[in-house]
Simulated scan of single mutants.
Amino acid sequence: MAVQDIRSFNRFYTNVIGALDYGRRLYAPYTLTESRVLYELAHAPRTDAADLRAQLHLDAGYLTRILNKFEEDGLVERGPSETDPRRRSVTLTTPGREAAALLDERARQAVGEMLDTVRAEDRPRLAEAMRTVRTILGESRVPRPEDVVLREPAPGDLGWIVQRNAVLYAAEYGWNADYEGLVARIVADYAEDHDPRLERTWIAELDGRPVGCVMCVRDDASGAARLRLLLVEPDARGLGIGDRLVGTLVGFARDAGYREVVLWTNDVLAAARRIYRRHGFVLVAEKPHHSFGRDLVGQDWRLDLHATPGGRRGVAGGGAG
């Protein structure tokens, strides 16, 4: 490949990005760099200014001016770092989170409008080509925990949960299509009728692709929060994603007013069970059963939220839950 090929592609892609922000409607009233800072702060609820500068490759003085502006506008708060008194932490305020959410909504809408011009049958090929470019040009970069973003599901993500559960559990444990059917029913029930105040799904995203998930639903029998479908992709394990997903779910359940979180899993899922223990879950019952084409030992776990006021802070999947 010639240098000129890359430069030509760069000019083409720059025009595409410019078209997304035609008339500066996407980032207004912020610059592109200011919008990137807001995005990073929104997806890392508490971070040090030094870490932020390293993540975005920004000059220290430039970042300081941006944060000063944000602080004057009431978008951020700064204080001593919890880990190093020589550093300053940066946290979004409520107006800051609202501004970041508005920018994210605009970006999703702009990209959606661009994709509307692409034929449906060409979209998978486009996504794969983008992943190929990212992988080849970034293959020397080792993923870091801070590269992982937890977000709500986008269109297609619920289908991804079903597909990846079916594929991974078949490959790693030999489970048959009965498990895929169970996951499909869980996801369909959630998609058709869930209360966002009490039920939520999180997708872990790394380099623009989903690599993990967990679901919190209300248990009809007990009224407790039920953890379901914890999963982390094999190539993303070791980054603490499972811990973050469970910790986020526990925090949500506590804020939503639940008294306890319950889950059902199987004893073969050792990595997931270690995560549950770290977050204070206790094994309350287990029973042998034959499901998904295998002889298994099902386990019921429980977390008393009143007994663990603070909560605890990679990793395999957790079963249907």
Results as ranks from 00 to 15, higher is better:
156 G>N: 09
197 R>E: 13
243 D>I: 03
200 R>G: 06
236 A>H: 04
135 T>P: 08
201 T>H: 02
128 E>S: 11
204 A>N: 04
155 P>T: 05
223 G>F: 10
210 P>Q: 03
243 D>P: 07
234 P>L: 15
241 I>T: 01
162 V>Y: 08
155 P>G: 09
232 V>K: 00
206 L>C: 14
170 A>V: 06
192 E>C: 14
139 E>C: 12
155 P>H: 04
227 L>R: 09
237 R>F: 05
179 Y>D: 11
177 A>T: 11
144 R>D: 12
184 A>W: 03
210 P>T: 03
195 D>C: 15
160 W>E: 04
247 G>V: 05
133 V>P: 15
248 T>Y: 02
239 L>N: 02
242 G>V: 00
167 V>G: 14
155 P>I: 07
232 V>W: 00
220 D>L: 14
174 G>H: 12
181 G>V: 04
246 V>Q: 00
150 L>H: 02
211 V>A: 03
254 R>W: 07
138 G>N: 06
209 R>D: 06
149 V>M: 13
178 D>H: 10
191 A>R: 13
141 R>Y: 11
245 L>P: 01
162 V>E: 12
143 P>V: 06
253 A>F: 07
134 R>G: 12
231 L>G: 04
139 E>S: 13
145 P>W: 05
205 E>K: 07
214 V>R: 00
240 G>C: 06
176 N>S: 15
250 V>M: 02
192 E>A: 14
212 G>H: 01
187 V>T: 08
237 R>W: 03
180 E>Q: 11
240 G>H: 02
173 Y>K: 05
159 G>R: 11
232 V>M: 03
234 P>I: 13
164 R>A: 04
201 T>F: 01
229 L>C: 02
201 T>W: 01
171 A>Y: 10
188 A>K: 14
183 V>T: 05
212 G>T: 01
144 R>E: 14
148 V>C: 10
232 V>A: 02
158 L>Q: 04
173 Y>I: 06
174 G>E: 11
155 P>L: 07
192 E>M: 15
178 D>Y: 08
222 S>P: 08
137 L>D: 11
188 A>H: 12
182 L>H: 10
215 M>Q: 06
231 L>Y: 04
242 G>N: 01
239 L>A: 04
147 D>I: 08
224 A>K: 10
209 R>Y: 06
198 L>N: 05
168 L>Q: 12
200 R>C: 07
216 C>Y: 02
148 V>W: 03
184 A>I: 06
192 E>L: 15
168 L>D: 10
206 L>D: 09
243 D>E: 10
144 R>N: 13
216 C>P: 05
213 C>L: 10
214 V>C: 01
226 R>M: 13
130 M>H: 13
141 R>S: 13
243 D>V: 03
158 L>K: 03
194 H>R: 07
182 L>P: 10
143 P>E: 06
160 W>S: 07
225 A>H: 04
214 V>A: 01
208 G>F: 07
217 V>G: 02
198 L>Y: 07
147 D>V: 06
215 M>C: 11
155 P>N: 06
223 G>I: 08
185 R>D: 13
184 A>H: 05
246 V>H: 00
151 R>H: 05
133 V>S: 15
196 P>F: 08
182 L>W: 10
213 C>K: 01
247 G>W: 02
153 P>I: 03
143 P>M: 08
201 T>N: 02
208 G>I: 05
185 R>Y: 11
191 A>M: 12
199 E>Y: 03
218 R>K: 10
211 V>M: 04
233 E>T: 03
156 G>K: 09
140 S>W: 11
144 R>K: 15
